[in-house]
Design a protein around this nucleic acid. Structure first.
Lengths: 192, 192
DNA sequence: TTGACATGTTATCAGTCGATAACTACTTTG
DNA sequence: CAAAGTAGTTATCGACTGATAACATGTCAA
């Protein structure tokens, strides 16, 4: 079986996807470039040659995830440009677990100045996009993203989502609080 | 200069503190047991002998941080048992940056089943405590913790807090939204 | 066809890390 | 004082990692 040959650009895209998957599980320091290489079916040194360093590979993955998140929000806003619809879009993002998990690992890896800078830029773009798409003020956008962060963290902790552990009472309580529409304190706002 | 000799219990506590500091910066995979050892002024093998493994050291640090967070909330509730007061307590937690940063790294490291289990238990305890101290319902407690998660993430990203980078416009906008009391959508609720 | 370029691989290395083992030194107790 | 327990060290190992260099293989234009 001969290896399928791709252009450098194509291979780069494929590797970025593999990097999103791999880094989403174990984070920057916990994932080896060989993990990414195996996932994509190429050798580890080739990954380094294409991206220059592990750091640049990670940043490429974070930016890819952020771009995808923005796209999901944009698509949702095309249906209806309010926070409630964007909140529904969050369900799609939670289904693609990798995106938010990777972003969380990016936040955590922000003590590295280069990674931190890239991650802040991505987060800032998402915040701005939410405000522009829906026209809400800073406080509403902040509360929207706050709930999003909690959902992201709960998913990473495997309290919510596909890979969730058997729920303890407090987990079920929180999960229910997201699904009960009557419990919303203000009409049309929170993701979930 | 002779090394100060401590009992195993004392040294263990000191090492747990050092572990909180060290793991808060670079996370589980990104921090070596030698980093923790140097911070405490002992040799690396001794750290392993006292805690058995790096994993157990990390879990000890996470549980220590969670316990401290609970204590801050309890102290605040003794002044006044409502969410607003607990929100003020959050400022103390943000000042002790390590605690929340470490917890965030714990969330991110939850793909390890042993760590994940410990982290979920800690989070569940904090959630329960917030509800018990204030008597709020699940939705209010969830929104409180959601804002807390956003604050934690923003601090880790160095958007807020002592080590923050020079603020870009969107950062100032979010920071302001926390300080403006008039912008609160519902009276007395969010941390910050 | 041939040669230049692009796509990949294997071999290898220097550094790091968690963990074990064996040894040392201090303290307490009888 | 001696012996036993406690606190801590140095030496060392095997595994892993990111990165470099050299080599191989496939593709396409002249």
């Amino acid at each position: 079986m001969t290896r399928t040959r791709l252009t450098a650009a194509e291979r780069g895209e494929q590797l970025t996807g593999a990097a999103v998957q791999a880094f989403a599980v174990s984070g920057y320091a916990g994932t080896s470039t060989d993990d990414v290489a195996r996932l994509a079916g190429v050798s580890q040194p080739y990954v380094i040659r294409l991206f220059g360093s592990k750091q640049r590979l990670f940043i490429a993955a974070v930016e890819h995830a952020a771009t995808r998140i923005e796209q999901v929000f944009r698509d949702a806003a095309e249906r209806s440009a309010d926070l409630e619809t964007l909140g529904e879009a969050y369900d799609e993002l939670l289904a693609e677990r990798d995106l938010l998990a990777l972003l969380l690992h990016g936040f955590a890896a922000s003590s590295d100045p280069v990674i931190g800078s890239a991650v802040r830029t991505c987060f800032g773009r998402i915040y701005r996009l939410v405000r522009e798409l829906t026209g809400v003020d800073a406080t509403e956008a902040r509360d929207f993203l706050a709930t999003g962060m909690l959902l992201t963290v709960l998913t990473s902790m495997q309290v919510l989502g596909p890979g969730a552990v058997p729920p303890e009472p407090w987990m079920a309580e929180i999960a229910d609080s997201f699904e009960d529409p009557c419990a919303e304190p203000e009409p049309g706002g929170q993701p979930g």
